[in-house]
Computed example of a mutant assay.
Amino acid sequence: MAPEPPPSETLFVTGLPIDCTNEYGKEIFAQYGTVKEVTTLPVSAGKNAKAAFVIMETVDDAKWIVEHVNGNVPQNLTDPVTVVFATPRADRAKGKGMKLGGRVHAASGGETQW
């Protein structure tokens, strides 16, 4: 199994409402610190939740969110979210991909079953 990404300002969040926008994502996480940017991702076929990259102003804000929000229900939401540090962009670009649910999602968009 690949090592976990190092702490950084960039978080990968899953379990967001299907209708979550970049602006709403920013509102959700602004209650925990200064949010620089939120990029919601298209919903994959068969999924009932959205994922997003959330970039916080500081690593400390991001660490706090991973430690205290991961697995919990943020205010104004009804379901728990999963929050982890994002794989650094350079590593994603090298095709290392992200392991999600037993599949590797490579930067090329392909999937490989483990």
Rank of each mutant, 00 (worst) to 15 (best):
M1Y: 11
M1T: 01
A2Q: 12
P3Y: 10
P5D: 01
P5M: 02
P5A: 12
P6C: 04
P7F: 12
S8Y: 08
E9H: 03
E9A: 08
E9P: 01
T10M: 15
T10F: 04
F12N: 02
G15F: 10
L16W: 10
L16T: 00
P17V: 08
I18A: 05
D19H: 13
T21K: 00
N22F: 03
N22S: 06
E23Y: 05
Y24D: 02
Y24R: 10
G25C: 13
G25P: 07
G25D: 14
E27N: 06
E27Y: 11
I28D: 01
F29Q: 02
F29E: 01
A30E: 11
Q31L: 11
Q31R: 15
Q31M: 08
Q31I: 05
Y32A: 02
G33I: 10
G33N: 02
V35I: 08
V35Y: 11
K36P: 00
K36Q: 13
E37L: 11
E37R: 14
V38G: 01
T39L: 14
T40P: 00
T40F: 07
T40W: 05
L41P: 01
P42D: 12
V43C: 12
V43P: 00
V43S: 02
S44K: 14
S44C: 03
S44D: 12
A45W: 05
A45S: 14
G46M: 04
K47E: 06
K47C: 03
N48R: 15
A49Y: 15
A49L: 05
V54M: 14
V54Y: 14
I55T: 15
I55E: 15
I55N: 15
E57Y: 05
E57L: 09
V59F: 03
V59Q: 12
K63P: 00
V66L: 05
V66S: 04
E67P: 00
E67D: 15
H68R: 12
H68N: 15
V69M: 11
V69C: 09
N70V: 10
G71F: 10
V73M: 09
P74E: 06
Q75C: 05
Q75E: 07
N76M: 05
N76G: 07
L77C: 03
T78E: 13
D79E: 15
D79P: 00
V81F: 03
V81T: 06
T82H: 04
T82L: 02
V84P: 00
V84Q: 08
F85T: 00
A86C: 11
A86R: 13
A90H: 13
A90Y: 08
A90T: 04
D91L: 13
D91M: 09
D91R: 14
R92K: 09
R92E: 04
R92Q: 08
A93M: 13
K94E: 11
G95T: 10
K96E: 14
K96H: 11
K96C: 01
G97Y: 06
M98L: 04
K99Y: 07
L100W: 11
L100A: 01
G101S: 04
G102K: 09
G102R: 10
G102I: 02
R103E: 10
H105L: 11
H105F: 15
A106S: 09
G109W: 07
G109P: 03
G110N: 10
E111F: 14
T112H: 06
T112Q: 12
T112R: 10
Q113T: 05
W114C: 01
W114K: 00
